[in-house]
């Protein structure tokens, strides 16, 4: 049973992909889609449909998959590294830091991918460092103090982000605000190509360390099990920040995915990182893809996907907090 559920989660992007390919304001029949993918040179295909599929739909789908995988794996890993089921890149303030960094790059330097990603990563790292330091002010960091520290850091970077809106060129403000809400509407092939290396590297690294992530979730006790605790933690925190920063640079803050997906996977498959990490990667990709498909079809405008994931994720967090009273504290 568990085996089949695992296979289902691993294959979920393959199930979500055709659904998303066929959804959209422009109807393209499955046959036409098949034709365009298999024989794109065929003359009988309408060029507009061709453009919709290749230049709009496909890059957006790939980007949704990348962003979903990035946010989910970084959430799952952060929870293990901090031995804290309540954290995610969003809750620890990493997303807010990265979002501020990327917005700053847009306003100050016009925002090429590289500067946005660099700034997002730098401020993401700063956010993680401040959050961890704050949570330890009163001795050992408890699950709740880490969450509180994350709220403080998120709030500060949120305020700084508003400052960036104020100093931004009026032409650009709307664009930056829309992006920061967590949206994939500006997806393009260059976005896919520029995001892939960072997200790919981080995801592969976190997957490679999956057993260590299990052991690290035992807390400092991991030292007695032969883990080079400090070094490995810093490496893995850096990897989670890297994938978050790249995801934020291209899609803004798609909130709550990093909390929701790992918990759903844990409920289904259990805590072992050997299944948690790969299943979070694939199921997270499918989840954001489906959410974005909904976001671009459900209303007459494109909705930012971040709004949908928040509307699903926030109540779920409440549910976790209720559970945590008996199970975790």
């Amino acid at each position: 049973m568990r085996r089949w559920l695992m296979i289902l989660l691993l294959a979920s992007p393959l199930l979500a992909f055709p659904v998303s390919m066929l959804s959209g304001r422009v109807w393209i029949s499955p046959r036409a889609v098949g034709q365009m993918i298999l024989t794109p040179q065929e003359a009988s295909i309408q060029p507009t449909l061709q453009a919709v599929l290749w230049q709009v739909r496909l890059p957006r789908i790939l980007l949704a998959l990348l962003v979903g995988a990035a946010l989910s794996v970084s959430g799952a890993s952060l929870q293990q590294v901090c031995w804290n089921p309540l954290v995610s890149p969003y809750i620890m303030g990493v997303s807010a830091g990265a979002c501020f960094g990327a917005a700053l790059a847009v306003v100050l330097w016009g925002g090429g991918y590289a500067t946005m990603q660099g700034c997002a990563f730098a401020f993401g790292c700063i956010a993680v460092a401040i959050t961890s330091a704050l949570s330890q002010i009163r001795g050992d960091s408890s699950p709740v103090s880490l969450v509180l520290a994350g709220i403080i850091v998120s709030a500060c970077f949120g305020a700084l982000l508003f400052m960036v809106y104020l100093i931004a060129d009026p032409d650009k403000v709307a664009q930056v605000v829309y992006w920061s809400m967590g949206s994939l509407h500006a997806a393009s092939w260059s976005g896919v190509i520029r995001s892939f290396p960072g997200i790919g590297l981080g995801v592969v690294l976190l997957y490679a360390f999956r057993w260590r992530l299990s052991v690290l979730s035992m807390g400092t006790e991991a030292k007695a099990l032969g883990v080079a605790y400090e070094r490995e933690r810093i490496l893995l925190l850096a990897a989670t920040t890297l994938v978050t920063a790249f995801a934020v640079s291209v899609a803004g803050t798609v909130a709550w995915v990093g909390l929701l997906v790992p918990h759903l996977v844990r409920l289904i498959l259990g805590a072992d990182s050997r299944s948690l990490i790969p299943a979070s990667i694939t199921f997270g990709a499918a989840f954001v893809l489906l959410a974005d498909t909904l976001a671009r079809t459900v209303y007459k405008y494109d909705l930012p996907v971040g709004i949908l994931t928040t509307l699903i994720g926030a109540p779920f967090f409440l549910y976790l907090l209720r559970r945590s009273r008996t199970a975790w504290v």
């Binding site: 293990q80 804290n84 089921p85 979730s217 807390g219 844990r266 259990g270 805590a271 975790w328």
Partner: peptide, 10 residues
């Protein structure tokens, strides 16, 4: 108790 419900075998 650890933060996550690992199996005893794990």
């Amino acid at each position: 108790p650890p933060a996550f419900p690992f199996r005893v075998l794990d």
